[in-house]
Simulated scan of single mutants.
Amino acid sequence: MRAKWWFGVLVCWLLSVGAHAQDKLIYCNEPERIRDAGTYADARLLAGQSYTVFYHFRNSSNDTGDFVVQLKSLTEESFSFSSKQGLADPESDPPSVGRQAMARYLRAPEKPIAAAKGVARFTYKLSHHQVASGMMTIKADKNIRMRIYYKHDKWDAPRMRTLVLDSPRCEIAVPLSGELARQSFRIGLPERDTNKTRLRDGSYGMIYSFKIAAPEGRKVRIGFIPRGGKAGIVGMLGGDLIVSEIYEAYERGTFCDALVGPRGELQLTTSPFGGVFYPVELTFQLLPAVAASSSSGPSAQRFHPD
């Protein structure tokens, strides 16, 4: 079904210059289910280039084994890399695992890591019906190879496909005033892969940065409506991590009421997470002055992913 995705006068653009020009998104979700041992994603990462890796897999095999994200030097020499990581604890509920991974990622600092023996592995046990979900950024000082595998990487899993896409970031200006007190935007619309061959599910791994401009001292209500299946929102707002409950399709939820600061600016950073469905329609509404002063504040909870 074709979605109408422009609302109001929102302006969205994918950054193609400056620091984000080198960004790549590695999307790892095909096949979605792990049915046997093998490699489920494989990509080469170039030195000095920044990559965001998104993965979400469910273990549909009948046993337990190691699920591994491996970074390995092409020459077996040591290498260093910086990384921002959001790796969830394996559980059986896909939305909970995906939400935890995104919450951990949005809060995570970027850390330097040394792979002294030419390999770095992020490993955990994955039992039957458990879900492995994660998002991480990687920037290495040498060319390396990334593989995601279950038990071993001796052969590729059937129908394994790794997508590499450009510029996984979208910035949206949201001006709110008395004349334009409400605006809407849909996140998680399907994007074409780099070969333009077909649509992928919903922009998982895409970072959305909403820059809201509104009168100082007023409140802005941020709400959302899932437009296909159940979904939720995890986002950073003013240095706080906020998470919504999971809502069914077309059920309206309030993410939070946010007070506009002295510079007349708010910034919300969010991203679609695994285990739920997209697109999701976000709404930004400038509350009347009287309603703003009596509002009870955020309806979503502060979330501690650990």
Rank of each mutant, 00 (worst) to 15 (best):
D153R: 04
A140M: 02
N195T: 09
D166T: 07
I212T: 00
I212Q: 05
Y40T: 01
P94S: 13
F273Y: 15
S167Y: 12
D66W: 03
A116W: 09
S295M: 00
A157I: 01
P262L: 14
F81R: 11
P90L: 08
S203Y: 06
F185I: 15
F81C: 06
G239T: 07
M236S: 07
A115V: 07
H128Q: 13
A231T: 09
M146V: 00
V53F: 03
S133C: 11
A37C: 08
Q267G: 02
P305S: 13
I34M: 05
C28L: 09
R99F: 02
Q285G: 05
V11T: 12
Q301K: 13
L241E: 06
F7Y: 14
I222S: 04
R107Y: 01
Q130N: 06
D306Y: 04
D141A: 09
K211C: 13
R121M: 02
Q183N: 09
F224T: 06
T64D: 04
E248V: 01
Y124L: 06
A37S: 13
Y204K: 08
F54P: 01
S16W: 12
D42Y: 06
R35P: 00
E179W: 05
V280Q: 00
N62Y: 12
I222T: 04
L87Q: 03
I212Y: 03
Y51R: 01
Q70T: 02
Q183M: 13
G178S: 11
K154D: 14
I172G: 03
A115R: 05
E30Q: 14
V220W: 03
V119G: 00
D36Y: 05
L286Q: 00
A173P: 01
P288R: 02
R192P: 00
R252A: 10
V68S: 06
S73E: 07
F7R: 07
I148A: 04
E216R: 10
D89H: 12
R104G: 06
V69P: 02
Q285S: 15
A120I: 02
G239W: 06
H56R: 02
E76R: 11
A291R: 11
D23L: 14
A289C: 03
E191L: 15
K117N: 08
N29Y: 09
R99T: 04
I138V: 15
L268M: 13
K211E: 15
L165M: 15
P279R: 10
F303C: 08
D23E: 12
W155F: 14
C256T: 10
M102P: 00
G86P: 02
R221K: 15
S167Q: 12
L10G: 13
P298Q: 07
P262R: 15
P95A: 12
T75Y: 00
K142S: 08
